[in-house]
């Protein structure tokens, strides 16, 4: 008999997460932006962080991306060689190198993440040049490949992003980050401010890239629809704290916390 019994239940084997945030705290004077935030992220997972304005989700992202130093807590990242390093215990050159190669940051406003006066090709090629690529033809070829991947006409490789639409600028920003094959991408409202049809296209692209490249990503958004589409897991933040966390479809279809229930009930269908 091949029965299932409670005594058969095995403990889940431990796998080192790609990123582990523990007890993150950040205050701005008397304002508590993040309080004791903890979560982990494994390779290939997309984690959605949802919350309304003031929830602390952007502060969280800024701390994790090392733009802000947290007041307490640890941010541990597993490097390519398997060692685990704490983000703020690293030397600044090491951290900068990490940000430039193994991590990507997609800003809400693509203008914050692009060089507007420089051609699309140069924007995409910059990370390669920053780590020593010195063959113009190869850099250009790489840039063209990535433009294709993000569905920007390759003919526009020499145009500056100033001449692009918002959606194209955002896709260029993604290409600029992904060219160095990062293992972790942080995204802050990647579809914010874009027209609905443009959003759909971008989300589809992000879904595809995350799955094709096995990217781990943290997507901060206030839009539950975006979260449902992109994220495998979801954390809900409110007033600086995580109030609920779990599988995306479970959090959205069976919300436990009163605030999550409120959020979910507020979506226009």
């Amino acid at each position: 008999m091949n029965d299932l019994s409670l005594t058969d239940v095995a403990a889940t084997p431990y796998e080192t997460p790609l990123l582990r945030v523990s007890g993150l705290c950040k205050n701005f004077g008397a304002v508590v932006a993040c309080r004791n935030v903890s979560f982990a992220l494994w390779p290939g997972e997309v984690l959605g962080v949802v919350g309304e304005s003031g929830s602390g989700k952007t502060t969280l992202l800024n701390c994790v991306s090392a733009r802000l130093q947290p007041d307490a807590g640890r941010i541990e990242f597993q490097l390519r060689d398997g060692r685990v390093a704490e983000l703020f215990e690293m030397s600044e050159p090491a951290r900068r190198m990490l940000m430039r190669t193994d991590w990507g940051i997609v800003h809400q406003n693509p203008r914050d993440g692009l060089r507007l006066g420089v051609s699309a090709g140069a924007n995409v090629g910059e990370r390669l040049m920053a780590v020593g690529a010195r063959h113009y033809g190869e850099i250009r070829g790489n840039a063209a490949d990535w433009l294709r991947k993000v569905e920007i006409e390759v003919a526009r490789i020499d145009d500056p992003p100033r001449t692009f639409s918002g959606g194209m600028q955002q896709r260029l920003q993604i290409a600029r980050n992904l060219v160095s094959r990062p293992r972790l991408v942080l995204m802050d409202e990647p579809t914010g401010g874009l027209d609905v049809s443009v959003q759909a296209r971008l989300l589809d692209l992000l879904r595809g890239l995350c799955s094709e490249l096995g990217l781990a990503a943290i997507v901060v958004t206030h839009d539950l629809g975006v979260a449902r589409l992109l994220a495998h897991r979801l954390t809900v933040m409110r007033r600086g704290e995580i109030v609920e966390s779990g599988l995306t479809d479970q959090v959205l279809d069976d919300p436990q916390h009163p605030y999550t229930q409120l959020l979910v009930a507020s979506i226009l269908q």
């Binding site: 019994s5 409670l6 889940t12 495998h232 779990g246």
Partner: peptide, 26 residues
């Protein structure tokens, strides 16, 4: 899709037995 409130849901997964009541989302 819904959380187990009380009780157990045992599933034979690969060579192991997991309990949805306690299994991590991953």
């Amino acid at each position: 899709n819904y959380l187990v409130e009380q009780g157990h849901v045992l599933v034979r997964h690969d060579e192991r037995v997991i309990d949805l009541a306690t299994a991590p989302p991953r």
